[in-house]
Amino acid sequence: MIEALLLLLSVTAAAYLLAPAFRRGPIGRTDPRTALENARVAAVQSLRDLELDWQTGKLSDEDYRAQRATLEAELAAVGRRLAALAEEP
């Protein structure tokens, strides 16, 4: 009885595993927007951190302005690339 059940289980599992193996298809590609979106989130996070560091008095105004400019430029670049991708179909 148990043997029969286990045999049935094996056959089902094998069929489930092998079914897709013969369909030749391409490998999916990661949407380039995903990586850009991650970079955008990271940049926003960095800016927020920088902001808090400055507000709590860890950075001089001068350093804050310089770093903020760099990060904003990075963010803008990511934004432009995202916008360019959005315009493509």
Partner: peptide, 22 residues
């Protein structure tokens, strides 16, 4: 929900942040 165009221009936080100078 992020929109690429707003992301490119800047951040909502720049409006709230700079007023809180130490």
């Amino acid at each position: 929900v992020p929109h690429p165009a707003t992301a490119a221009r800047g951040l909502p936080l720049s409006a709230q942040g700079t007023s809180g100078a130490p």
